[in-house]
Design a protein around this nucleic acid. Structure first.
Length: 731
DNA sequence: AGCACGCCGACT
DNA sequence: GTCGGCGTGCTC
């Protein structure tokens, strides 16, 4: 054959998604001898820097000036991102209107994982060699290494109980030879048959349905079960099925829900703890989990929302526990709701998704009612214990005297519980001592200088703190407005103030405050949680973190100090949030041991949310909430969007927007527009606006956004948007 | 003049 | 997301 007949050796190119906010993949030359496939993780030059990206297409139409092309520097020795994950990245980017590279960045969140762990030097017994002289220490070493497996020098020394010099001596004589051990072996795989639970007939029925879903493609099941009904045990059976089928499972939990308790429950069922994935994990562990997941060796991951973006090689199941929790939302960079994106990934991968909650979100309930999701109800408590006995204390007639916050009825309930050595929990979703401080003399109210919210007194810290932007200042002695000395007065209760009252009422009780801003950080909080769990406190005063994830087995009484708090907000989901929070926190009472009580202090005991809670008629709550949204012109999904258009003073605008999003639309300083008006304002005003637009309107937001993006492509920093629309309808 | 800072476009 | 260029305004 003549050389002339051969097609000219064409230059190979590939499009590479780079982790920057550009709208499309860039084209690079593939160096001779390098082999890339779609999904290959590569190192490429970009501008003056080098970045890690992923090959998106090996046959791109190169509409780019060939002279501009740069060459791929390195192809990482890591499994390529599979087709399922690449489609998921593209989908999420399209949905969130983020650059695909920004979504890729969430996938490539472990630099160390991109190359195999370097081999560890080790020693292996050379069987036909023995030491010149035997000593007791040497004998122990030989006995330890008799299995013929490779050991690390220090590991062998420690196990045999000798110093490393004994090992060195033996190695010197050739009794051990140096070898290289490949990366630390992964822990044993979870065993689906390790400890199957005793399920009630209802639970078994639900578990069976979840198992059957593995043969039905991308089915979403909503498990709707009261606190203590055994949701976890039931979805563990779906995890077991994934394992039996040789597939991987991921369990997403709200960040705070990933407790020691949860890991222990997993271990009890499957014999080993699951792999963990969350923001606190060390880089080394992070890399192991990432690689293990990509290679398929790690079979079950329990993690926060970011675990959804792990490169599973054969994902078979996604579970979203506490699916109603707002911690699944990410608002910075790419803004997404991991619960919704889990449904999307399940859909693309044609695998079952399980959403579980004691208080499902309204949108998931609606999706279930519409037949998009299966709905499985677990009504009773598994232990046979009844739900806590709930009652309301009408603060208008049965309230405490002025300056106190705990009604006499609740005080006596605490006294009774304490006498019977049970634990009481007082729930108040307000950190600090008092939510508002004012001057007795002139009426001056302490406001945050950055964002105009009230400053909250934190007596333990001795500071005034803004809960919106984090701004902190010292508590002054004199009023900054009129100069009067010692005239400051605290208005309303926070957990610290309730604790003060409790300590006065029950001097013998062990009182503990559980709040996210405890001095001593998360470690201390973890210790305190454990302490409460083991009975080391009698009365616990806590903010919403006691409502989430953690179970306190000895808790017999839950008192809600202000059940109205949260109901009055302008947020269209205030009622839903309050219902969920109160149901979760009161559900803690007697959760394990049964026979718990809940007392809710309220000035509006006839509010539908409280009525629904008290009658345990959850259906009534959902019916009323869906109806209320319909009446307000909102679709039942809670199709909500917020546009935050940031102006030139970026930091100020963002702090402002953050503050506003919590108090809006009550704050008059904010212009509130619908998306159409916001879009027009953007285009007309050359985005010199400082506004937050909330659009609880029934509009085609996606259409509007696309429309205006073509009119005025958002400049960097010019526009930040959050989309909070249930993606179900677009799948 | 020298430099910090913010804005803006480019990045294959 | 991050860098470099450039204009503005201020001067340990």
């Amino acid at each position: 054959m003549l050389f002339d007949d051969l097609p000219e050796a064409r230059e190979t190119i590939a499009s590479v998604l780079v982790p920057v906010a550009v709208p499309e993949p860039y084209t690079y030359r593939v160096p001779a001898g390098a082999h890339v496939v779609p999904g290959s993780i590569v190192r490429v030059p970009l501008g003056t820097r080098e970045v890690t990206g992923a090959v998106w297409d090996t046959q791109p139409d190169a509409a780019i000036n060939p002279r501009k092309l740069k060459e791929i520097l390195h192809v990482h020795d890591a499994p390529p991102l599979n087709d399922e994950l690449r489609r998921f990245i593209d989908w999420v980017a399209g949905w969130t209107l983020a650059a695909p590279g920004m979504v890729l960045r969430m996938v490539l969140r472990s630099e160390e994982a991109l190359e195999p762990e370097p081999p560890v030097p080790g020693l292996q017994r050379v069987l036909d060699r023995s030491p010149d002289r035997m000593t007791p220490a040497r004998a122990r070493v030989l006995a330890t290494a008799a299995d013929g497996l490779a050991w690390t020098r220090s590991g062998l020394a420690a196990t045999a109980g000798v110093s490393t010099s004994v090992i060195d001596g033996l190695a010197e004589q050739g009794v051990f030879e140096p070898v290289f051990m490949t990366a630390t072996p992964l822990p044993l795989p979870p065993d689906p048959a390790f400890n199957p639970p005793q399920l009630t007939p209802t639970q078994a029925g639900v578990a069976e349905a979840l198992v059957a879903n593995f043969d039905r493609g991308g089915v979403v099941a909503l498990i709707d079960g009261v606190t203590g009904s055994g949701k976890t045990e039931v979805y563990f059976e779906a995890v077991a099925e994934a394992l039996r089928r040789g597939r991987q499972a991921v369990i997403l939990v709200p960040e705070i829900g990933l407790t020691e308790q949860f890991l222990r429950r997993f271990e009890t069922r499957f014999g080993v703890p699951p792999a963990e994935w969350h923001s606190e994990i060390t880089p080394k562990k992070r890399a192991r989990v990432w690689r293990g997941v990509a290679s398929g060796e790690v079979q079950v991951v329990v993690g926060a929302r970011s675990a959804l973006f792990l490169p599973f090689s054969r994902l078979g199941l996604i579970v979203v526990d506490e699916e109603h929790d707002t911690a699944f939302k990410q608002d910075d960079r790419v803004s997404y709701n991991a619960r919704d994106m889990a449904v999307v990934r399940g859909h693309l991968a044609r695998i079952p998704v399980v959403l579980a909650s004691a208080t499902p979100s309204v949108e998931s309930r609606v999706n279930a009612d519409l037949g998009r999701y299966q709905r499985h109800v677990l009504p009773e408590r598994a232990s046979g214990a009844s739900l806590p006995d709930l009652a309301v204390i009408d603060m208008r007639t049965e309230g405490p005297e002025r300056g106190r916050w705990i009604a006499p009825g609740l005080v006596s309930a605490i006294r009774e519980t304490f006498a019977q050595k049970g634990q009481s929990l007082l729930f108040l979703n307000r950190r600090g001592y008092a939510p508002l401080t004012l001057c007795r003399s002139c009426g001056h109210r302490f406001q945050c200088s950055q964002c105009s919210a009230w400053l909250v007194e934190h007596r333990m810290k001795g500071k005034l703190v803004c809960h919106h932007c984090g701004h902190t200042e010292a508590i002054p002695r004199a009023c900054p407005a009129c100069g009067t000395q010692d005239a400051l007065v605290a208005c309303g209760p926070g957990v610290e103030r309730v604790a003060e009252e409790v300590e006065g009422l029950f001097p013998d009780a062990r009182v503990l405050v559980l709040s996210s801003d405890l001095l001593g950080g998360p470690d201390r909080l973890r210790r305190e949680m454990k302490l409460v769990e083991e009975g080391g406190a009698d009365i616990v005063i806590g903010t919403q973190l006691v409502a989430k994830g953690h179970n306190f087995p000895l808790m017999k009484l839950v008192g809600v100090i202000d059940a109205d708090l949260g109901l009055a907000h302008g947020d269209p989901r205030a009622a839903e949030r309050t219902f969920q929070l109160l149901a979760q926190v009161t559900g803690r009472a007697g959760r394990i041991t049964g026979g718990g009580r809940g007392l809710l202090q309220s000035y509006s005991p006839d509010h539908p949310v409280l009525k629904a809670l008290l009658s345990s008629d959850r259906e009534a709550f959902y019916r009323a909430e869906i109806e209320a949204r319909r009446a307000a012109g909102l679709p039942p999904f809670g199709r909500l969007a917020a546009l935050v258009i940031s102006g030139p003073e970026k930091a100020a605008t963002e702090a402002y927007a953050r503050a506003v999003s919590r108090v809006a639309p009550a704050d008059r300083a904010v212009t509130i527009l619908g998306p159409a008006e916001a879009a027009l304002a953007m285009v007309r005003g050359r985005h010199r606006y400082r506004l937050l637009a909330m659009a609880p309107r029934q509009v085609d937001l996606q259409g509007y956004l696309r429309h205006w993006m073509t009119l005025a492509p958002p400049a960097r920093g010019g526009l930040k948007l959050q989309i909070d629309i249930d993606p179900q309808q677009f799948l």
